[in-house]
């Protein structure tokens, strides 16, 4: 425990911020205590999620978009998530390679995170780290997900504005009507738009959006960009600002924050329930023996579970 850490954080010390993020990522007692005391100071920063397939240009877009917001004088934090190895737990976090414009800027803070086994495009503690950055006083926080495929939509819970990046050449119109990631975009970006097929991708997204049975109040725009050259970035930044204005005018920001708080409560309760149930199971003298019998196929896992942790919830909540 470093008793000075939180005080230094509150004075705006960026090394204290960086160290506190590590505590939160590692789930140390200090990290947990800090989250608790910072929580009420959160909810001020705008959050933007950037998601899309590997190599689509997410990091380059983040770099360009951040440079555009810096011109407005906004203080920025960027969280970039890259995958952890499922075998060794190691990771190569290399999103910074594309973010050279920002690395000497004292009003930009970039933090790379490894996914550490989580599969939704973020790591388990990305939401908590977002809160730490929010409490530190950044105006805008950009969250770049792991390169994703179709179903990794967790970023929509953390970010109030989600940008979905597509590129020409990946799939046909069938991909565009599938459920998942294409449902979470508040704006769609067709990057590498100097490659053939960009107009077709834009059209497919627009068609997909026009088929929405409950047309939303916010119609997600489709923006073509060439991020490496900065083409289309001003338009994208304009659309993000328009989405902010929309959220503010309709008090949607308020609603999103409320939903996030309730989701946090749900996560905390789940973690506690899991913790106390695990402790009860592990404390049972017959645990090892029953696990061995399951392994050998002598009893089925349901039977073993009934004996180890009799279920006291309502019947409809009992999994098979």
């Amino acid at each position: 425990m470093d008793p000075e850490l939180l005080a230094r954080f509150e004075r705006g010390d960026r090394r204290a911020l960086a160290r506190l993020i590590t505590h939160v990522e590692d789930g140390t007692p200090q990290g947990r205590a800090a989250l608790r005391s910072l929580y009420r100071a959160t909810g001020k920063a705008r959050s933007i999620g950037i998601t899309g397939p590997p190599g689509a240009g997410k990091s380059t877009l983040v770099d360009q978009l951040a440079a555009a917001f810096r011109k407005d004088g906004l203080k920025l934090a960027i969280i970039c998530v890259d995958p952890s190895s499922p075998f060794t737990g190691g990771a190569i976090l290399a999103d910074r390679v594309r973010m050279k414009h920002l690395q000497e800027d004292p009003d930009v803070f970039i933090r790379s995170m490894a996914s550490r086994g989580a599969l939704g495009g973020l790591s388990r503690t990305t939401g908590a780290v977002l809160k730490v950055l929010d409490a530190f006083g950044f105006d805008v926080i950009l969250i770049e997900t792991v390169g994703v495929g179709q179903g990794e939509v967790e970023v929509v819970r953390e970010a109030e504005t989600c940008l979905v990046i597509e590129v020409p050449g990946l799939g046909d119109g069938i991909q565009a009507i599938k459920a998942g990631i294409l449902e979470i975009g508040h704006a769609f970006v067709v990057n590498k738009a100097d490659n053939p097929g960009a107009d077709r991708v834009s059209e497919q997204i627009l068609t997909m959006l026009s088929l929405n049975p409950n047309p939303p109040e916010w119609q997600p725009p489709v923006v073509q960009t060439v991020a490496t050259r900065g083409t289309g970035i001003d338009e994208l930044a304009r659309q993000v600002r328009a989405h902010w204005a929309h959220l503010d005018a309709k008090s949607l920001r308020h609603r999103h924050l409320g939903q996030r708080r309730v989701a946090d409560l749900s996560d905390i309760l789940k973690a506690r329930a899991l913790g106390s149930a695990s402790q009860r199971v592990l404390a049972r003298p017959d645990f090892t023996e029953l696990r061995r019998q399951v392994e050998l196929g002598q009893i089925d896992p349901y039977e073993a579970a009934d004996r180890l942790l009799p279920f006291d919830g309502p019947d409809e909540w009992r999994l098979p």
Partner: peptide, 9 residues
Amino acid sequence: RDSGMEVIY
């Protein structure tokens, strides 16, 4: 990476 560390390149 293969030894389980997180490497920022």
